[in-house]
Simulated scan of single mutants.
Amino acid sequence: MNSMGELFSLSDLRTLSYGTTIACGVLFWIIEGLKPFFSTVQKRGLHARLNLSIAALNLLILLPSGILMAFMLEWSNSLWPGIGMLNLPPAPEAILIILLIDLWMYLWHRLNHETRVLWRFHSVHHSDATLDVTSSWRFHWMEILFSELLRLPLFMLMGAGIEHLLLYSLFMTPVIEFHHSNLSIPPALDRVARFIIPSPMMHRLHHSKLMSEHNTNYGSMLSFWDRLFGTFLFKENLDDLQIGLDGESDSRNQQLFALLQRPFRS
């Protein structure tokens, strides 16, 4: 274990990260049912069951990948210190690594929109016409696999430890659940939130059917990447916003096997 072990217990981080993900997901799902932004949402249970089924399949990749990631990062840290060569104290080192991970998440998300092959898989996420907290877990298993394969050598290069990934997940996952949620929050709160994180109003534009809108606001945990790279977009009024993809809202297309097969359709 690297210097992060001086600040955090690995087992505590793992428990806290997983527990926070589940707790925030349940909390947001309950609250968005009581105070929704899109009031026309129906059959929330069926929608959640579909997205959670996709998420459960992804665990078949994420669980063994997490074990491999922990082993490979520990091994690479013994050979290559990465950011550790700067000899920073544990807290600044963790902040720097977390910023680099979040930058990678921005770039990876943007690549999924701008690369035709990757978009075929990422479009499963965008084909959801009912945006809520469970949408944050709806990703095609091939996209998850590509992401895991690409980020491992990057994390090894930067000298990240599994502790950094768990700490990043602890902060990032509730943010992703929050900005995918169907919560109706005061405009002033959304305004404050989007200075730091992608707010729900920001991310709803990202799920617009209009390409000029859904090719914006790629940030995962922090919103300033979009401002820095010129992909930030905001609209005060979303009354005319249409979520999803054209021709994908039909119930036949919103079935588990149809979504798994979607990237391979001509």
Rank of each mutant, 00 (worst) to 15 (best):
M1G: 13
S3C: 13
L7F: 12
F8M: 05
S9A: 13
L10E: 06
L10V: 06
L10I: 09
S17I: 04
G19M: 00
T20E: 02
T20L: 06
T21R: 10
I22R: 01
L27G: 14
L27K: 00
F28R: 02
F28D: 00
W29D: 15
W29I: 14
W29G: 15
I31F: 12
K35T: 08
P36D: 01
F37S: 13
F37C: 09
S39I: 05
S39P: 14
T40N: 13
T40F: 05
Q42D: 07
Q42M: 03
K43F: 06
R44P: 09
N51T: 06
S53P: 10
A56D: 04
N58C: 03
L59E: 03
L59W: 00
L59Q: 11
L60A: 11
I61Q: 01
P64M: 00
P64E: 00
S65W: 01
L73C: 05
W75Q: 13
W75I: 04
S76P: 15
L79R: 07
G84K: 01
G84C: 02
G84M: 00
P90V: 07
P90K: 04
I95M: 04
L96Y: 00
L96H: 03
I97W: 02
I98T: 09
I98V: 08
I98A: 03
I98Q: 02
W104T: 05
L107C: 14
L107M: 05
H109V: 15
L111G: 12
F121G: 07
S123N: 11
V124L: 08
H125E: 00
H126R: 03
S127R: 02
D128N: 08
T130Y: 12
L131V: 07
L131P: 08
L131D: 06
D132A: 09
D132E: 10
S136P: 06
S136W: 00
R138F: 05
S147D: 06
R151M: 05
R151D: 03
L154D: 05
L154H: 02
M156D: 08
G159R: 03
I162R: 08
H164A: 10
S169M: 08
L170E: 02
F171P: 15
M172A: 15
T173Y: 04
P174R: 03
E177P: 15
F178S: 10
H180L: 05
S184R: 11
P186R: 03
A188Q: 15
L189A: 15
R191F: 01
V192G: 07
A193S: 10
F195A: 09
I197N: 12
I197G: 11
P200C: 11
H203M: 13
H206Q: 04
L210G: 14
M211V: 15
S212C: 12
S212Q: 09
H214F: 08
N217Q: 03
L222N: 03
W225Y: 04
T231Q: 07
F232H: 09
F234E: 10
L241C: 13
L241A: 11
I243P: 14
L245D: 04
D246W: 08
S249W: 01
S249A: 15
D250K: 05
N253K: 14
N253T: 12
Q255I: 10
L259T: 08
L260T: 14
R265L: 11
R265C: 12
S266I: 04
